Simulated scan of single mutants.
Amino acid sequence: MTTSVDKVPEGPGPSGTASPHHPIRAVPVRHYGRWVSAVVVVGVLAALGAAFAGGKITWSTTREFLFNADIMAGAGNTLFISVASMVLGLVLGVTAAVMRMSGNPVMSGVAWLYIWIFRGTPVIVQLLIWWNLALVFPTMFGQDTNKVITPLVAALLGLGINEGAYMAEIVRAGIQSVDEGQTEASHALGMSKGQTMRRIVLPQAMRVIVPPTGNEFINMLKTSSLAFVVTYPEVMLKVQDVYTNNLAVMELLFVACFWYLVLTTVFSIGQFYLERRYARGSSRNLPPTPLQKIKANMFSLRTPGGAL
């Protein structure tokens, strides 16, 4: 806490003589710049709000389609494809991470090639390749490829396989964060490599894996909007169908923003509590929950040191 010091005039000491020591009274220094910057920020936000409120946007149209049945169905499809793609990405990521760390050069090389290709090319390109796979393979499993690669399958493969490449590096970093002594001790107890990985390494690596995995899932919810290029009926495609007919482009885009914010907010809260759970074994003081933060700061603008 930054303070100023006020000296109290000398007075006679207990024995009637002047005391050589001066009592000090700490006075908090007022940080007026903080208040000025806060006013400026609030003013800018108010100006932006007024600009949107007074713009050529028919907010009644936004409210009308906010809970439209088709758009809500699209939001449900967005959630489904995001979860399904993330599960596929996790499976592929764990597999590729273990292969990448393998002593077998073929396994390690294949995993490296997979990560290099799918991390190095745009998701939208990968989606279009899966969607047009019939141009390369006219038939698959004895059937017309166009019947096998449906919009759902194309979206799942495009998003899930791409996510697996990112998850592979996240899982590998988590595994390498576990001390090698843990592995040596488990081998000394007679555990196989597979048992060591499942029972010793991965449970401890979860503390490192969970936070970036949560961020990847939040990103997946937004990246799923690219599935409209393969005509998968997620929320963005539903919104496009509506504004193509009524030409209320901005109004419907705000509807899409609303649903993406709802989904990401819900899962961000879930991610926080999941991270908090895995932090119990490594942190003496768990981070405060959002409700605890709100309660602590609702009526106070004081800094952690106590200064205004």
Score class of each variant (00 low, 15 high):
Met1Ser: 13
Ser4Lys: 13
Asp6Ser: 12
Pro9Phe: 04
Gly11Asp: 07
Gly16Met: 02
Ser19Gln: 11
Ser19Asp: 15
His22Phe: 13
Ile24Asn: 12
Val27Met: 10
Val27Cys: 10
Tyr32Cys: 06
Val36Trp: 11
Ala38Lys: 06
Ala38Gly: 13
Val39Met: 13
Val40Cys: 04
Val42Leu: 15
Ala46Val: 15
Ala50Val: 11
Gly55Tyr: 10
Thr58Glu: 15
Trp59His: 05
Ser60Lys: 08
Thr62His: 04
Phe65Ala: 08
Asn68Cys: 07
Gly74Ser: 10
Gly76Ala: 02
Asn77Gln: 14
Leu79Phe: 15
Leu79Cys: 03
Phe80Asn: 09
Val83Thr: 01
Ser85Tyr: 00
Leu90Glu: 07
Leu90Asn: 01
Gly93Glu: 00
Thr95Phe: 15
Thr95Arg: 08
Thr95Ser: 14
Ala96Ser: 14
Met101Gln: 05
Gly103Trp: 05
Pro105Ser: 09
Pro105Trp: 00
Gly109Lys: 06
Val110Gln: 07
Ile117Gln: 01
Phe118Gln: 06
Phe118Cys: 06
Arg119Met: 04
Gly120Phe: 03
Val123Tyr: 13
Ile124Tyr: 13
Gln126Lys: 14
Leu127Phe: 06
Ile129Asp: 09
Leu135Met: 14
Val136Leu: 02
Phe137Glu: 11
Lys147Phe: 06
Leu152Ile: 01
Ala154Met: 07
Leu156Ser: 00
Leu159Tyr: 00
Gly160Trp: 00
Asn162Arg: 05
Ala165Glu: 01
Met167Gln: 14
Ala168Glu: 04
Ala168His: 06
Ile170Val: 14
Val171Ala: 12
Gly174Trp: 08
Val178Lys: 03
Gln182Pro: 10
Gln182Trp: 08
Thr183Leu: 05
Thr183Phe: 11
His187Asn: 02
Gly190Leu: 00
Ser192Asn: 08
Ser192Ala: 06
Met197Pro: 06
Arg199Val: 12
Val201Gln: 04
Pro203Gln: 03
Gln204Ile: 10
Gln204Ser: 11
Met206Lys: 04
Val208Gln: 12
Ile209Gln: 09
Gly214Phe: 09
Glu216Lys: 08
Phe217Val: 03
Ile218Asp: 02
Met220Val: 03
Leu221Gln: 06
Ser224Glu: 01
Val235Ala: 14
Met236Cys: 10
Met236Gly: 09
Val242Leu: 09
Tyr243Ser: 01
Thr244Pro: 05
Thr244Ser: 15
Asn246Ala: 00
Val255Phe: 13
Val255Ser: 12
Ala256Trp: 00
Leu261Gly: 12
Leu261Ile: 13
Thr265Lys: 09
Ser268His: 10
Phe272Glu: 04
Leu274Tyr: 04
Glu275Lys: 07
Ser282Ala: 15
Ser283Tyr: 12
Pro287Ser: 13
Pro288Phe: 04
Leu291Tyr: 11
Leu291Gln: 12
Ile294Leu: 15
Lys295Met: 06
Lys295Ser: 11
Gly305Ser: 08
Ala307Pro: 02
